[in-house]
Write a protein that binds this DNA or RNA. Sequence first.
DNA 1: TCTGGGGTCCTAGGACCC
DNA 2: TCTGGGGTCCTAGGACCC
Length: 424
Amino acid sequence: MPQRSKTLFGLVDCNNFFVSCERVFTPSLEKKPVVVLSSNDGCIVARSNEAKALGIPMGAPMFEWRDVCRRGGVVALSGNHALYADMSDRVMRTVAEFVDDYEVYSIDEAFLRFGPREDAEGTCRALRAAVHRRVGIPVSIGLDATRTLAKAAAKFAKRHPELHGVFSLQGHPRKDELLESFEVGDLWGIGRQYSKKLIGAGIRTARMLRDLPDTWILRHLGSSGLRVAMELRGMPCGEYAAAREHRKSIICSRSCGRPIVSLPELKEAVATHIASAAETLREDGLRARFLTVFVGFRKQGYGMPYPSGRSVQLETPTNDTPELIRAAHTLVDAMHHDGLAYKKVGVRLTDFSGEEAHQLDVFGRGEPDPKRRAAWAALDKINAEWGTGTVKFAAEGVARGWKPKAERRSPRYTTRWDELKVVR
DNA sequence: TCTGGGGTCCTAGGACCC
DNA sequence: TCTGGGGTCCTAGGACCC
């Protein structure tokens, strides 16, 4: 197979992204241990370096670390995702200015691709400086022949301040040595299970995995593991992270601030999730044909709540909110049991088609009503401009005592007029 | 007592068909 | 007592990512 060895991949990774966003607007958080919490103030999903130094792990439940946080003077903030999305846009716009061929990979990461004659490293240094100057977010950038190696390079850049945030592994004279120092579990694509298997077999480092025979990898880790090894050898497995043409599902789910017991409240929560899922659907110009409602109960020992769900295939694909709410409520009626306490509620939409190529059912129905389309467009516009939930459907409820807790949220400086930063 | 949310891909097994 | 083989499609579960 011809190698595209001339192409160089870059990975831009925002350091401690959510914490860095908060610090832009609250400079007093600088140099202090800070954590950002997930929905319901449940888990720790971002940590400043000072918080990491206290030993607080990623994804840890807050209640287990409350004492450590109190003793260490840690500032804990509820997630302010409207702010983070807006800051992410600013970072990505800067990336787009410096690099033609890039791919947004997550809210805080983008892959870059450079041709053979481009000054990749110089561009990355300029990009890093520009993001810092304009957006105020520190980033680390790694470079090498594959995405997996670029990700590893970015970790080196982050770990060693003397590299000033940019590091290229490509052609590095001590590459083997560096990969030997890189723990296998820190590789992109090697999670907890694979890591356990590898370490059990004595494979502790990226270099050891790279040099393993394909047959062994295939037998123990399957094709996903082999892809990681090939990328470590410098062979890009493009489809691994290639830009997806279209999304394949939309999920909206939340843990409840307090458990839901009544049928009307369960319906409210489901309607709320449907409304936001349908908004995403319309934003992407899609209709969905398959709808799932799922619920979770109180924790069953360790691990995730025991989930249970029901699905329905709609007669025709739709993105009409009331229509979807009706279908979802039929499912809720069938699944609700008196006396059960619902801890988590969610909906999932799948089986998408484009807005133009809609299908009619056997009776020729399914032609979208232009008046309704216009109404949803207006609603989406208002909610986009003034914040999600500015205009709601009656079915979403008013009291909403089940809403997740977010007791330490910072203001939405960039997306709400009434929460603009006041400068004195 | 308190443990997030939103995604993707792969695989194994069952149903069904010829 | 004998009781195929191969293909496809669907679903559930597991693994991974941020």
